[in-house]
Simulated assay, not measured.
Amino acid sequence: MKYVDEFRDPAAVRALISEIETALTAVDDAKKPLQIMEVCGGHTHAIFRFGLDKLLPQAIEFVHGPGCPVCVLPRGRIDEAITIANHSDTILCSYGDAVRVPGERGSLLDAKANGADVRIVYSPLDALKLAQAHPDKQVVFFAIGFETTAPATAITLLQARALKVANFSVICHHITIGPPLKAILDDPQVRLDGLIAPGHVSMVVGQQIYQFIVDDYDKPVVTAGFEPIDFLTALLGVIKQIASGQPSVENAYKRAVNDAGNSAAQEAMEQVFELADSQDWRGLGAIEHSGLQLNGAFRSFDAKLRFGLVSAQIEEPEGCACANVLRGLAKPGDCPLFGSQCTPQQPIGALMVSSEGACSAYYQYRQL
């Protein structure tokens, strides 16, 4: 396939829906509806944008996972970024979605409105260029995201060290995809029959990272791309595995993902990062060995150390159901704030802010 229209072809979609309906007949009725978690928020938006939930049988229920990096960003980390941004000699750089996520003291966008120098960048390399252009300022990059964005941060820090850019640092909140999935699968309140793995992360880490889901939890995992044909192909693979009783790790996104992942990206991360003992996740709490921190060779670029920040845990706003949505225990419409007090224009929870957030998808495509 060469063009995106081929991945949205209505005839091909109908054919896959028919195959899914046939595959479901081989699944024990006692298991239905099947609880399928799409880990990535990009998949959530694809489901609702293209109306896949309307086309599929009611024997399938989607559970929205924690694969949106902005959505799992703790409120305390937002407040840390605001504290740094409020320094008069500082330029705080961030990806676009993160500036609108509310902490206890508002958002980075609010800080910008109050005079802080907060800038949206498309890459940490943009922030490094700002540091070179403004040697009289401390330039701090708010480094968030799974293994998808961590290599870009690592490469930027390697370059900053090589160029001896002393006024550049990062707030490091890079996280890893495996531990939160384990935490969810260990939760006795969560019932999952299979998982659709995120394509973006898998391009970097490969397929082997999901093998524990098969070995330890006996659940099928299929990696998917983000177009309708991609997603439905992966869903069909999950259902066939459930029907056969033989779970495995399968790749339905072979044009972008291979078993081993991107070795150059992995090498860059290994040079710069090490696993943190524990990491806080919005809605999931502290999870062991789930975050990346700068290793000893790059500790001088750690903005938390440079600015003397102490991490604090901050509770979710009263009534906010983001935590349960992230854990697969609720849908956005179950939140009493959804669509009334919490909207994309005035978000209270992170899931309403992010372009990959489940609440954002429901609000945009399925207002309840």
Rank of each mutant, 00 (worst) to 15 (best):
R49Y: 03
S18A: 12
H64A: 01
H64F: 14
A23Y: 13
T44P: 01
L56N: 00
I60W: 12
I36N: 01
G42H: 00
I60Q: 00
I47W: 10
C40W: 06
S18H: 15
H64W: 10
C40S: 04
G41K: 05
V39F: 13
T25S: 15
P69G: 11
V63W: 05
F50Y: 15
A59I: 01
C40K: 03
E38N: 12
F48S: 08
D28V: 12
I47Q: 03
I20F: 15
T25Y: 14
T25M: 15
F50T: 04
I47E: 01
E61L: 05
T22S: 14
G41P: 02
S18L: 12
K54I: 00
A26Q: 15
G42L: 03
I36D: 04
V39N: 02
E61T: 15
L55A: 11
L34Q: 05
E21K: 13
D29R: 07
E61S: 06
A23P: 13
D28G: 12
F62V: 01
I20W: 10
I60C: 04
D29P: 08
T44H: 14
T25R: 15
H45W: 00
L34W: 10
I20T: 12
D53M: 05
D29I: 07
H43Y: 06
A46F: 00
L52F: 04
V27L: 06
I60F: 10
S18V: 09
E21F: 09
I47D: 03
A59G: 07
K54R: 14
A30N: 14
T25F: 14
F50C: 08
T25E: 15
P69Y: 02
V63S: 01
H45L: 12
A46D: 00
V39S: 09
L56Q: 02
H45V: 14
K32Y: 08
H64E: 03
D29Y: 00
E38K: 03
T44G: 04
A26W: 13
H64Y: 13
P66D: 08
F50P: 01
G67T: 02
S18Q: 14
K54A: 07
G65T: 03
V39W: 06
T22P: 03
Q58Y: 12
S18T: 11
V39C: 07
H64V: 04
K32H: 12
M37T: 05
G65Q: 01
E21H: 07
V39Q: 13
I20N: 09
E19K: 14
P57G: 04
L55H: 04
S18C: 05
I20G: 08
V39Y: 15
I20Q: 05
G67S: 05
D53L: 09
P66H: 14
T44M: 08
H64D: 01
E19S: 10
A59D: 10
I20P: 07
G41I: 07
G41N: 04
P57L: 13
R49S: 07
C40R: 13
L56V: 07
T22R: 15
D28K: 14
P57W: 13
R49M: 11
K54M: 09
